[in-house]
């Protein structure tokens, strides 16, 4: 059930700027994200979208600007100003990060069950049977056969590894997911299945998400709102259907007209 409440935003970014020498990563980017919303960030390579995602998810500290997150009990905190321990706890419970390459988000030599159970163990779960059952449950939700629970991710296909990464992240029922090209590198049919899965999970869990992608079809499929980036700046932002059906900025129009229609 999606309830877009009038409460304050879940994540608010203000004036995020990150520069690498004379190369602009992202320049003065601001955004609001509400619970249950999926925001797509599109742009071509070098547009700054991945840099922005890293600044938002605290993987990188911006040069200027703040990122505030509203915690479960309602308090809002500056993500970069909070202590290490608190931030790492946040990243393990309330947040999810899905990497483009699942190997970056998995322990390749720990079993599938161990991978999914790790977050639970990290927050104090101490019943082996319960942990294993929860892991099995989530493998089922991401359509991985339960009899693979003791297998190592090195034996999985790319699509399965990606689904395992998703299960590993969602087991603590985070409220916000950051995804960097979640379908990149996957076959088209595998991509489609993954998108359906993500859409279903987002809806069932009331998950908010920021999805970086260069693929407008992925953006249309997953996101409610869209931000178009070019050379580090946001050139257009609005509802996904609006940006794709009535793009205003020349670059947005160029991107949209470049989609090959079946």
């Amino acid at each position: 059930m999606n309830a877009f409440s009038d409460a304050k935003p879940l994540l608010r970014a203000n004036g995020i700027t990150k520069v690498f020498g004379h190369i602009t990563g992202c320049d003065d980017v601001s955004l609001d994200l509400y619970a249950g919303e999926v925001l797509g960030i599109v742009g071509e390579s070098g547009s700054g979208k991945s840099t922005l995602l890293r600044c938002l998810s605290a993987a990188m500290t911006p040069d200027t600007g703040t990122v505030s997150y509203t915690l479960r009990h309602g308090e809002t905190k500056d993500v970069h100003a909070m202590g290490d321990a608190e931030r790492r706890m946040l990243m393990r419970t309330d947040w999810a990060f899905v990497h483009q390459n699942p190997r970056d988000g998995l322990r390749m030599h720990v079993s599938a069950g161990g991978n999914v159970g790790e977050r639970l163990m990290a927050v104090g779960e101490r019943h082996y049977g319960d942990i294993r059952a929860a892991a099995g449950d989530w493998l089922d939700k991401v359509e991985i056969a339960e009899n693979r629970i003791d297998d190592l991710p090195v034996t999985f296909s790319g699509g399965m590894q990606q689904r395992l990464q998703i299960a590993r992240n969602l087991v603590t029922r985070p409220r916000l997911a950051f995804m960097d090209e979640p379908t990149g590198g996957l076959d088209v049919s595998v991509q489609a299945r993954l998108l359906d899965l993500l859409r279903g999970l987002v809806s069932d869990l009331g998950l908010a998400a920021i999805v970086v992608t260069h693929d407008l079809a992925v953006a249309r499929h997953l996101s409610h709102r869209l931000m178009v980036m070019k050379q580090g700046r946001v050139v257009e932002t609005g509802l996904t259907d609006q940006v794709l059906d009535d793009p205003q900025h020349p670059y947005s129009q160029l991107l949209v007209s470049s989609i090959l229609r079946a």
Partner: peptide, 12 residues
């Protein structure tokens, strides 16, 4: 958490 993951793997 990682320490318990090791124990989990042992049991599995």
């Amino acid at each position: 958490g990682l320490m318990h993951v090791k124990l989990y793997e042992d049991i599995a």
